[in-house]
Design a protein around this nucleic acid. Structure first.
Lengths: 244, 244
DNA sequence: ATGCAACTGAACTCTTGAGTTTAACTGAAC
DNA sequence: GTTCAGTTAAACTCAAGAGTTCAGTTGCAT
């Protein structure tokens, strides 16, 4: 369906090795891109393009046409190609941009830092977990983004690294810190931190993600049971003997 | 994407809804279509086509060309279209066929039935879990199939149902039976069976699947720690008081 | 108020890939 | 050994989509 440009450089004139005579393409060879439009107007256009592209990519998938994107952005197709040299580049920019936003750690993200000070650990963990699950389940945009990138990953191996860094592994430090703080305070007893972190993920958010991948959705009610029971399980395993 | 059929000729079958799960009636282009080729030779050709298509779909994704598939099957493209009316139909047939094979419950699948009789529950569970994880991790074909279908799911919503039925939810009955049997024998104490099943999944196989979706892979060593520790956690939560 | 860079719109090129046609060619059934 | 559905190779149609060209327009700065 998507007409793959021949592997290599389909863009202006020949490959990078042979600059076409007459074309002012000799600029900005540094990062491997043409001269990027600048100025206040250009910035507006660029933003409009990225917004439109993100909307359409998320809604329709990578297969959406550049004409549609340009139309949605109320911008000429040429402008799109002046800013981003190719569809791939645009896609990459969109995903990279989305990655910078507070996506996975949404506005309702779990309060990991405050966990160590909580008086009632079970309640605090449940609350944090609930926020976490909600962030994973309810954020349709993030959900679509996950599916989109996962599905198109083979086409963009470079994106894989950045993507992974913002994926589950990206949270490790924060979660690990929270658990370590609890262990240091003597409230948890964790022999293997790495495993504990993964288990917390496993019990709380992975079920959501896996079912989502299969196009299914655990209901609100089952999600809640899974949450409270998951916390229960985690605490039974790791709660320090003193803390009932 | 799909080119319009010649003016006058009604589309050949097109995306036909999948038959009920379990019915391997892959062909039979139902309403108003050409007859499906039959005979001993046709059967051979058909099999060759499906095999080639599966290989290429799994290796290259849905984007692979019909010409390539025909070539790989050592068959004329027309023959492909005589058997399956469209690329979509072929894809559907391939996935449906793969679903019927012992995929997820591979040859090395976990011995769920024998779990209840095991003398050492922890060891038995660990062993079964190990087989399970191995089936999930090592089976490249199943892995590719998961990624393929997940990525192309939006294009084949009908496939979603059949797919889901063979996904994690598809195992529920077997796992649930095993756990119930253990509960009946008084070796486990499970207040919420549905949750317990999901938790077992969560602790043992979901981490593998999630990381795989992100293009990453937990190592052998971490997988093993996760396994033994997951079993530990599960038993601490559900082991009946009497059974140390 | 002028100049340039960025933008527009529309027509254009080029490639790819799905599906079809045709005429000649099996191979299995009778 | 005729027959006919099934098969083949190759040339074909058709649509769509990426990327480009170009002649003209517009925003922004000096």
């Amino acid at each position: 369906m998507t007409a793959q440009p021949a592997p290599g450089a389909p863009a202006t004139a020949g490959t990078d090795a042979m600059p076409a005579p007459g074309t002012p393409a000799a600029q900005a060879p540094a990062a491997g891109s043409r001269p990027a439009p600048s100025g206040p107007r250009a910035a507006r256009k660029r933003q409009a393009i990225v917004r439109a592209a993100r909307d359409l990519f998320l809604r329709e998938g990578f297969g959406v046409g550049m004409d549609a994107i340009a139309a949605e952005a109320a911008v000429s197709k040429v402008t799109v190609y002046n800013h981003f040299g190719s569809k791939e580049a645009l896609f990459t920019a969109v995903v990279a941009g989305a990655l910078d936003e507070p996506l996975t750690t949404g506005p309702e993200g779990p309060d990991l830092a405050g966990l160590a000070e909580a008086t009632d650990l079970r309640t605090a963990l449940t609350e944090a977990g609930r926020a976490w699950v909600r962030a994973v389940r309810a954020d349709d945009e993030a959900r679509a983004l996950r599916g989109l990138v996962a599905g198109e990953l083979h086409r963009f191996p470079e994106l894989g690294r950045a993507w992974r860094a913002h994926g589950p592994t990206g949270h490790h430090p924060a979660v690990a810190d929270a658990l370590r703080a609890l262990a240091d305070r003597g409230r948890l007893e964790i022999p293997d931190l790495e495993v504990a972190v993964l288990q917390l993920y496993s019990l709380l958010v992975f079920p959501q993600m896996v079912f989502e991948q299969y196009g299914a959705d655990l209901g609100d009610e089952l999600s809640e049971r899974l949450l409270t029971d998951g916390v229960e399980m985690f605490l039974r395993r790791y709660a320090a003997p003193g803390t009932a």
